[in-house]
Design a protein around this nucleic acid. Structure first.
Lengths: 71, 71
DNA sequence: CCTTAAAGTGCTATATGTTGCACCTGTTGT
DNA sequence: ACAACAGGTGCAACATATAGCACTTTAAGG
């Protein structure tokens, strides 16, 4: 799933508003709105601010080879 | 591990130079150098360009509660 | 020694992410 | 209908990521 959608989904699961999330994660409300609506190209720092507050973690790993099997 | 270090490690595993990686991922060599040396704040787009070429995937997931157990 | 390849860095210009403000829409409750 | 709340968006200012260039350092190989 898209990162922006994951963030929105997680925020909604926690039942908090964009305004509150922006405040506690020290990210501007404007930036959060842009990010969640999938229109921006956020910096890693912005994403980390949100993941820390939301209890999410960003992992980078070797891709599982699904498309290799399909050929 | 840090994302910048993961990217460098993966590039070295594949045995390619920064110059080649920058070229095939349509990212400037300057930006890749900055990123790998851990000095920048890359955008999500830059990270995605690299992960796609390197066969890596960026995943965002609920944090496993290690620190909850330690208390 | 010299040459080549790979990586790091200062400088600069350009592109764009971040931010605040104002305003609009849609929803909920009275 | 009106008010309050949550979310989306255009605009402009500021901060900074991206990019190219030149130069340096280090390591490997002749």
């Amino acid at each position: 799933m898209d990162i922006s959608k994951e963030i929105r989904q997680r925020r909604e699961e926690l039942g908090i508003s964009q305004e509150l999330l922006a405040e506690v994660s020290s990210l501007s409300l404007r930036t959060l709105k842009t990010l969640e609506s999938g229109k921006g190209n956020p910096t890693l720092a912005s994403i980390k601010k949100l993941t820390e507050v939301l209890g999410l973690e960003l992992k980078i790993q070797v891709k599982s080879n699904e498309e290799s099997r399909s050929l």
